[in-house]
Write a protein that binds this DNA or RNA. Structure first.
Ligand SMILES: [Zn+2]
Ligand SMILES: [Zn+2]
Ligand SMILES: [Zn+2]
Ligand SMILES: [Zn+2]
Lengths: 155, 155
DNA sequence: AATTGTTATGTTATCACATAACATAACAAA
DNA sequence: TTTGTTATGTTATGTGATAACATAACAATT
């Protein structure tokens, strides 16, 4: 993806976030929006302190709680996912329809990809139903090598 | 489960671990075995520093690396799972056939249950295959309320 | 038995991630 | 303009994990 296209996607994602928040009557304040923008601008998962470092260039007074509060909001609104196995955060590619977190994490290139498999979702749901478990959040994270890295170096 | 039965299960799990390690030519040293025993004796997930506190009663010189090294070994051997969303560890109930980590975590009673669903496993595998992703570890963690807690207080 | 390479442990310090607690400010409704 | 609510500022601390280096135990070889 060319940089120009990429930046356009980021801008678009922010507009979508604006609309979603307005529609829900919640406030995407400048701080929250800046954190989301940082996550959108990067394609790889970022730690809270990585975000903090970047945020400081726009908001020198930023401190850990600044970032964690923004992340808490963005997670609640489904605009961002947390990657439990990396202690990192990544912007959601389809925030308009909230969904369970399903990620493929490449250990070579660091790329993360949202899987969004309905069949996995359904199968897991029925397994949960079968044992009477009432889920309120699901985490699926698969670590390995992505197609591109496997093709580049099939070892 | 009665205490006597439980303790028997723990002893049995340790014997199984002994045999597995012997068969694989790896060493379940006293330290490693003690950490595994602590995890087997408790049914709930434990943080590394919780384990450390208990370990100190038998091994006063124990320090964080002592525990983390033992956990690293036990994880490699599939004797223990790490719960990513809790930063905690729990002993595996079926170490004799290594498997992907699938957990149901009750937010009320704290109970964790290994799901071991073959259908979930298969569905995820085929989704991974479809996008050419070569997995080397899978994490599935579902948080919610277990059947018992739902029945006790259906709210 | 002595040598040597390997694996495991001891020890100190530090890094990385996250939140508690309390004060102030901005906002929105009455 | 008062009042309640939500958001932010600030300091300190809690919690989880590892780096780096030294020493000891073990196992294979000579
Ligand atoms: Zn998403
Ligand atoms: Zn890759
Ligand atoms: Zn298991
Ligand atoms: Zn429960």
């Amino acid at each position: 993806m060319k940089p120009s296209t990429c930046q356009k996607n980021c801008q678009n994602a922010l507009r979508v976030a604006d609309q979603l928040c307005q529609g829900r009557g919640v406030r995407l304040t400048p701080q929250r929006r800046q954190v989301l923008e940082i996550l959108c601008d990067h394609h790889k998962p970022m730690g809270a302190y990585d975000i903090l470092d970047l945020l400081k260039s726009e908001l020198p007074a930023a401190k850990p709680p600044t970032v964690y509060r923004a992340l808490e909001f963005l997670l609640e609104q489904g605009l961002v996912h947390r990657l439990e196995s990396l202690n990192a955060y990544v912007s959601c590619i389809h925030p308009e329809h909230p969904h369970a977190s399903q990620f493929l994490i490449c250990r070579d290139c660091g790329e993360v990809r949202e899987l969004e498999s309905r069949s996995v979702d359904r199968t897991l749901d029925s397994a949960l139903k079968a044992c009477g478990f009432a889920a309120d959040s699901q985490v699926i994270e698969v670590t390995g090598r992505c197609l591109r890295c496997t093709e580049r170096d099939p070892s």
